[in-house]
């Protein structure tokens, strides 16, 4: 790799040094399109997902991330484009890809009537795992996910967090090279989310598994090594979350007020562009910090709070797409109705 190339990459991913030395990608997507009737869920998507990292596909509902997940997990066949997973062609070598993939679905894929152990054994049979190797793996994954004392329990009696842990145990039982997870935090309480991330980080750092997850939660994407933000079936931002945020370079001023329109007008008078979303006025620029005092003087009690901070991933999304993350488009409604 050229020196310049290294520099560019290290700029894009400042918190990952090992990434510079890896040339392999877990997933390479080239010109991928997928249509539901007339509507394009994925629109000439180009994306590379680095190996041995935690990668998050962030996007609002209807952005195409679930469709992408279904394609990558081999549940859905695609119409146009080329996808290679761990160097294998997804459309021609789907079965080979399947044995290297661990898949954790958003909806449960466990048999609720079976015990944890029976579920794991069932999974093992599907992946050709048996005998001493299977016993060893069951020991390992149940240790890793702290499920040892739950093996004999019937799945439907377990809590949501435990069920998700069993799902992950099931997904990694056959030592996949790549673990795919669809909205893994959905339905989990904060403690269970923390557990989940600990497990994922351990998998990635200790076992060298490439982890790819979809999420619509900005704070979850922030924890990934590298992310891609999807919008309307296209990748609109790509890189380490920290790098994407600092790329905006500026501080963000957000004002919670009863009269947001007047504040936007006033800011425009100060040559600062501002926008309203989720009842907040948000403006970025080098001078926004200096505006806090005159702003509070001018609007006084109409202001409930003023915050100055680093841009978050939502700001990145707005900067790249020109619209809000939670903006409901007709197409996203359609997708949900489906």
């Amino acid at each position: 790799m050229s020196e310049l190339g290294q520099k560019v990459r290290s700029l894009a991913l400042p918190n990952r040094t090992d990434f510079m030395n890896t040339t392999d990608f877990a997933i390479e997507i080239h010109q991928l399109s997928f249509h539901y009737g007339e509507r394009a869920a994925l629109d000439n998507l180009d994306l590379t997902i680095p190996a041995k990292q935690i990668f998050a596909l962030l996007g609002p509902n209807g952005s195409g991330k679930t469709t992408l997940f279904r394609i990558l997990s081999t549940l859905e066949t695609f119409q146009h484009g080329k996808v290679s997973v761990l160097g294998l062609d997804l459309s021609r070598q789907a079965n080979a890809v399947r044995s290297l993939l661990g898949v954790v679905f958003q909806s449960a894929s466990l048999d609720r009537k079976l015990t944890v152990l029976e579920n794991l054994r069932c999974q093992a049979a599907l992946y050709g795992l048996a005998g001493a190797e299977l016993s060893k793996r069951i020991d390992e994954v149940t240790e890793q996910l702290r499920l040892r004392d739950r093996l004999k329990e019937i799945v439907e009696t377990l809590s949501g967090g435990l069920k998700r842990r069993v799902e992950i145990a099931k997904g990694i039982l056959h030592r996949p090279k790549l673990l795919l997870l669809d909205e893994p935090s959905t339905g989990l309480d904060p403690a269970a989310r923390l557990d989940l991330w600990q497990a994922l980080t351990q998998l990635q750092s200790v076992d060298g598994v490439s982890v790819v997850l979809t999420t619509h939660l900005l704070e979850e994407a922030d924890k990934a090594d590298c992310i891609a933000i999807l919008d309307h079936g296209k990748s609109v931002a790509y890189g380490a979350p920290g790098a994407l945020r600092t790329e905006l370079g500026e501080q963000v001023l957000s004002v919670l007020s009863t009269t947001p329109d007047q504040i936007v007008q006033w800011l425009a008078g100060q040559n600062v562009q501002a926008a309203i979303h989720q009842h907040q006025v948000r403006a970025s620029g080098q001078k926004v910090a200096q505006l806090i005092a005159p702003l509070s003087e001018h609007f006084g009690s109409q202001i409930q709070s003023v915050t100055l901070g680093q841009p978050n991933l939502e700001d990145v999304f707005i900067a790249r797409t020109g619209h809000q993350f939670w903006h409901e488009t007709p197409s996203s409604d359609m997708k949900r109705a489906k």
Binding site: T23, D24, E28, S84, L86, G87, L88, A96, S99, L100, D111, L114, E118, R121, C122, A125, L126, Y127, G128, A130, H174, K177
Partner: peptide
Amino acid sequence: MTPVTIEVPKPNSSAAVMMLAKRE
């Protein structure tokens, strides 16, 4: 892209059938 050689394990279909039958 550099060609990647990954050892792909061969699952045993009859073991899978027996396990799914046992599950029923």
